[in-house]
Computed example of a mutant assay.
Amino acid sequence: MPDPGQPPLFAPTTAQIEQLALAALSRLPDPFRDHLRHVVLFVQDFADEAVLADLDIDDPFGLTGLYSGRPVGEPAQTGDAPPTIHLFRRPLLDEWVETGVALDALITHVVVHEVGHHFGLSDLDMHVLEDMVAP
């Protein structure tokens, strides 16, 4: 059995990152969870080049998460794709190593930030929500 005080031998997989993100989403208060049941969660190693270009980001390690879709309260239009939250594994892992923040706390931070965009929350509101759902 590995020593809990030692770092893992292997980097967490996309499936493990997804589990941590789903756990963060499950800790959100009911009104948020109710609205998020149609939001699709994706975990991939990096954002694709087109997304990075659209956001004017040169370094693929510069984007840890992204919300896409209409915020709550805006009427849906025919042909709208479902709202999505993308988490980008490699940038998350780099930030985890660089900051020393626990991975579940880092993923919770990014998930809450992306959820905040869905709900149109201010940065202060996102911090309050993050404190409520911290692992």
Rank of each mutant, 00 (worst) to 15 (best):
F46K: 08
V101A: 00
A105H: 13
A81D: 12
D58W: 06
T78W: 15
R90H: 07
A105E: 14
L63E: 03
W96D: 11
D56Y: 09
T99H: 03
G65N: 02
E49S: 12
R89K: 12
H86D: 05
T108H: 01
A105W: 09
A47W: 00
D104Y: 08
L55C: 09
D104A: 03
D56I: 11
P82F: 09
E98A: 10
V101Y: 06
L93A: 09
L55F: 05
S68E: 11
T84C: 07
D80P: 06
L87G: 01
P60D: 02
F46W: 07
E98K: 11
P71A: 04
L63H: 07
D59I: 05
T64I: 10
A53G: 08
H86V: 04
F88N: 00
A50N: 09
L92N: 02
G65P: 01
I57W: 00
L63S: 06
P83S: 06
Y67Q: 03
F88Q: 00
G79E: 00
P71N: 01
P60A: 08
E98F: 00
G62R: 06
D54W: 07
L63A: 05
W96S: 08
D104Q: 03
T99C: 05
D45C: 08
W96V: 01
A81M: 04
L52Y: 05
E74I: 14
R70M: 12
G100V: 07
Y67R: 03
L66I: 04
V72T: 07
D58I: 01
D94F: 10
I57L: 15
V97L: 15
V110L: 04
V51C: 12
A50G: 08
P71D: 06
D104C: 01
T78A: 11
F61G: 00
D48N: 14
D48E: 13
V97N: 11
E95S: 15
V97Q: 15
P60F: 13
P75R: 14
L106E: 05
P60G: 04
D80Y: 15
L106C: 11
L52H: 05
L66N: 00
D104P: 04
P82G: 08
A81V: 04
A105G: 09
T64G: 03
A81H: 11
G79I: 05
P91Q: 04
A53R: 13
D104N: 09
Q77C: 10
